[in-house]
Every structure is written in structure tokens, then in C-alpha cells.
Nucleic acid binder design. Sequence first.
DNA 1: GTGAAAGCGCTAACAC
DNA 2: GTGTTAGCGCTTTCAC
Lengths: 340, 340
Amino acid sequence: MANMTATSGRKSVVIADVARVAGVSVPTVSRVLTGAAKVSPEKFERVQRAIEELNYRPSSAARALVHGRSEMIAIVAGDTSRYGYAMTIRGIELAARASGYVVLIVVLEGTEEEVVQPAIDLLLSQPLAGIVALQFDTKGVNAVKRLPSWIPLVAVSGSRPHGISHAEIDELAGGEKLTDYLLDLGHRTVHHVSIPETGDENGRTSGWRRALERRGIEPPQIVRATWEPQSGVAIGRDLAGDPSVTAVFCGNDEIAMGVMKGLAESGKSVPGDVSVVGFDNHPLSELWTPALTTIEQDFVDLGRRAFEMLLARVEGRTADDSTFSPRIVIRDSAGPRAAE
Amino acid sequence: MANMTATSGRKSVVIADVARVAGVSVPTVSRVLTGAAKVSPEKFERVQRAIEELNYRPSSAARALVHGRSEMIAIVAGDTSRYGYAMTIRGIELAARASGYVVLIVVLEGTEEEVVQPAIDLLLSQPLAGIVALQFDTKGVNAVKRLPSWIPLVAVSGSRPHGISHAEIDELAGGEKLTDYLLDLGHRTVHHVSIPETGDENGRTSGWRRALERRGIEPPQIVRATWEPQSGVAIGRDLAGDPSVTAVFCGNDEIAMGVMKGLAESGKSVPGDVSVVGFDNHPLSELWTPALTTIEQDFVDLGRRAFEMLLARVEGRTADDSTFSPRIVIRDSAGPRAAE
DNA sequence: GTGAAAGCGCTAACAC
DNA sequence: GTGTTAGCGCTTTCAC
């Protein structure tokens, strides 16, 4: 009632309105907002009431202008529709909001200069505190290369170049576990259908290779799939024609489903004739027939950790790289090697 | 070289730096930036070169402060990991960036006041041009209710209350098409496993009901699933016990996969004993065995349209609600009614 | 066309 | 403790 314009919700209630209603100066309002300095209990109280009454919210743009940056981070990703990405984004957003940060999202549609540069320019015109880059694919890896070095950056997964902070799941351990599991089941070797490369060899593939080499088994030729589950189908058909193939470790669950489909189309039974395992514990992997044996990854937690690392860097604390172990989920798609 | 500090990438290159290097006043630089007024060709040229040389990017925070809002929109969603959500978000982001907008994302973890209100407060402290709310679920629907009316808002899918702009796919037509298809195959009725309710009956369910009623068939009791594909399994088992069930229309593909699993576990063959159809054309629906008959939705396009509508409202143009027709994708999970 | 001056909403520095 | 002053980086009058 002191200020009908403001109370009636017409946008722009500013700090001066609050000051007027509370009968104090603008900086005093600011002081209760930021807690930067002491304010007498009574004025504190009056300010709080005025804020409440006017439904005042400080302008983050004005704050950003003063501070040079704002409580805002950005996520740069090459895709958002795949399970792992989406869950990681969710983890980042949750953790960010809990710390009072908002999150911008940028999805890159390619790696070409003409698409990446404008996206980065737009991003850098924002008062960002930092960036989390999802390096699950080439687009993400590429984007990181174009980011200026002054901005706090944390990369998730992917390759680890020149001193960038990193959060990741121990994919190597996961790949190794899965391969060991298959070998222990009696398979003489394990074939590998890999996710697309991002530059370096991915951890899953390295784990597979290591498990094989530890037992003195020469790793068979890697078959490379695309991110499309479909690509696994043709690969499955090919694999069905090779009698030495009795166990296949796929780079992710979706590819595994494609491979199983291809195998089935070629008359092979899973796990009867050939065992197949995936990676990620996709929500549908449990429903597949046969239910998929795979590696469970906690993507939400991964995202959360990535944000915490970024926050640490923003605040000038040091942040250790964060790696954590995945868990094997044994279901029905892998079994003992068939008798000949 | 005119300004080593700036060219060496030390953050903050401001408009005054550009003005100095170009030998013009600050407003002149602003004029070439915004195109708000004419600038002589030579100065224009000098300014452009200075911008290039210094790698200058205008501060969106400062602009936001002047304009009262910025080229920033927010997406409010209840989930981001499901296929439809993720694709819609992608469509929104792509369209937004093409128009020079950045996008904030907020994922709501519930509908409780204590989680929604802080999220909305944080959001509204940003200089937003508008909001796109994903109303696929209760969380999204609920969030819309708490948004102030002065902010431009477009809702995607879901129920349509009091004059909010809406973009959606014609789910009713989709549900009807699918049900007709099943009925034409000879089934005497079609059972329906619905996605969780959001308040109003969803379009898919309404389409199913309409197709049945048009033929004078009393719609059987609706079975309600959760968003978890798992929930379909138990439902599938139940359905297997009811001999009147020969055709099932599921609210989405993931639930359909669960239902098929439950049916299979109970010894029913699909589509031999019972036909099952889904909705969404999830990427894995094609790989499923049997491949799923479903409705294809163009979520990316949906997101794009939602953004265009929002932009129209922001710019004061009128925006018609946008509804468009889905396409049926016939595969192998539905067939003629089995002979008795 | 172009520059000088004012001001967006806020916080920080400085008196009192 | 508290108010006054200045200033963040930009755009927008308003003279010239």
C-alpha cells in the first residue's frame, strides 16, 4: 500500500523502492542483502519486511556489472539427448542451483568453426563464473580448445589435455572389470565394439585392452560404431559370421542393443552363442531381452562433482581431479562360452 | 599493439578501449555495435578493426542493465533425461541461439513449495526475456502456476490453462490414429496404459477414447503407469492374465517396452497373442524385438516452434498456438487379432 | 554524424 | 552503524 505500483507486480521493483519503504538508505538495503556489514536489528527487520512486502528480487545484471561476473555458469555439450549427457547436465544444474548459480546451456551441432565460434562468442558475452564442458564426444573436445584460458573450466570425461580440471568416472576400471568377467566365464577372447573416438583412446577401450594384455591375449581388431544404436545392427551381423566371436564388449548399452539385434537377425542366440555386454546401465538395458550385463555409472553424481570442482576454481581453491569407480551390473546377456 | 593489456587476453576489454584504439567516442562504438544510428564509413571501418584487434565482446550484463532485460530465456523442466524432454530442449536452444539468445535451464526436482520457490526466485533475478515451460509432467505444470504473469511465457505440451501460449504436437490425433490402426486390424477393443496424469487428461488418452467411442466401443479401464519403464512390466503381467486383452496402446515407448517385457514373461507373444503400440518413436523402439509400432513426434521442431512463439510475444507480436500432426510408424509389434 | 552527459540497479569506498 | 559519493559498461538523450 505504500507503493501500489510495486506491490501490484508490475515488474521492476528496485532497491530504491525497498529503501524508501523501509525508511533507510539504499546501501543499507544492500548490506542486509549481502550481509557485507552490520545493520541494526530494527532496520534489518524493516528492510526484510519491505523486501517481503514488495516482493523484491535483486537484479543479477546490476550485480554482475559491479562484480565483473555473476553467479552463472555454462554447460557446453555436443548432444543433450543421450542418457549420459542428460543425467550429467541434471547433476550439474542441481548442484549449481543449490549454490545459488544459474546455468546456461549451449549445445553444439558440429565442430566447424562457423558453428562453434558464434556459440562461444555469445557465451563469452555473458558474465560467466565458469564453464563445464562435456567431453563425451568430439564436439565437446573441440569446443574446449577454443575457450580462452582465463575462464575457469572443468571438463567432464573425455581426453585430458594440458592441465584442465577433470571429473570422470573410472572407465578404464569399468572396461577392465567387464572384460575380466567375460574371460572368467571361459571366453578365449573378447571382441570390442567401440564408441566413436574423441582423439585419445577412450577409457573403456583401454580397460578392455589392459584386461586382455594382462592375460597375454592379443586384442582383436576393434570395430568402431557411431553414436547411433542402429550402427550396431550391421556390426552384429558381421560379428555373427565370425566363429571366433563368442563374447563382445560394446562401448555403450545402446550399441550393445544394436549388436544384439544384428546377432539375433543372423540366427545367433545371446548369451547362448555369443555373450554381449554394454556400458552405462541405460534405463532400458534392464528391460531388454536378455537383460543386459553392463557397467553402472552415476552420471548425476559426476555432474555434481564437476560443478563442485568448478566452484572451487572460481573461488580460488584448488580442486583435485575427481575419479570414481563404476560398478558392474550382472544380468542375463553374458554367459559361459558355448561348448563346441 | 596499441593496447597490449587487452590484446594479450586479460579479460575485460571494454567499449572504452575500442573507442580509444579506433580514435572515436564511446557512443560511436555503441552505434556501430547496435546499428542504432549512422556512422561515417571510415569510422565504422576503424571501429570494426579495433573490435577485431582487441577481440572485444560487449558485456551483456551492462546491456541488460540499460535495457531492463537481456537476450536470455529460460527453460523450466521437470526432467531432462527423458528422450522427449532432451530433444525439445535441444530444439529450443538451437532456435534461441540462432536469434542471439542464450538459454538458462532449470530442472525441478519436485512440486513442493520449498524446492520450486527458490528455483523460481533465482530465475526471476535474471534479466529474462521470457520462459518456456515444459509441461510434460506435473512438475512442469505446477511450476507454471507459480510464475508471475508479467513475464512472457510459452508452455509446451500439457494442459492449457488460462490463455497461456502453447506449442504442442497433436497428441489427440496420434492416439486416435494408433487406436484406429489397431481396431482396423480386427481387435474388438484396445486397452490403454497411460502416462502419469498432469491434471487434465493427456491428448494421447483422449485420442484413444475418441477412436473407441466413435465406433461405439466402451473404453476399458485405463491402467496408469509411472514414468519409469519398469512400471510397465508389472502391468504387462497383469494384462497377460486378462483374455480380453488383445491390443494395448501404451502412453509412451518406454512403457510399451516394459509392458512387452511383462507380457513375454507371462508367456504371451507379441504380436502373436497381443499387439502393443507405443508413442514417441524413441530411438530404441526400432531396435526392440519386435520393433515397435508407434507415433513419431518431432520434438526438436516442437522446441523450435515454442521458441519462435516466445520470441513473438517478447517482441510484442501475436503468436498463434502451434499444433502439428504426428505420423504413425508401422513396425512389427502389432498384428491381426489372434483367432480363438 | 558525433561527442558530452546522464542513467540503468547495484555494491564498494569513504566519510561521519 | 549509516548515509553520501562514485563507478561497474553500456545505451540513450541531447546538443552541436
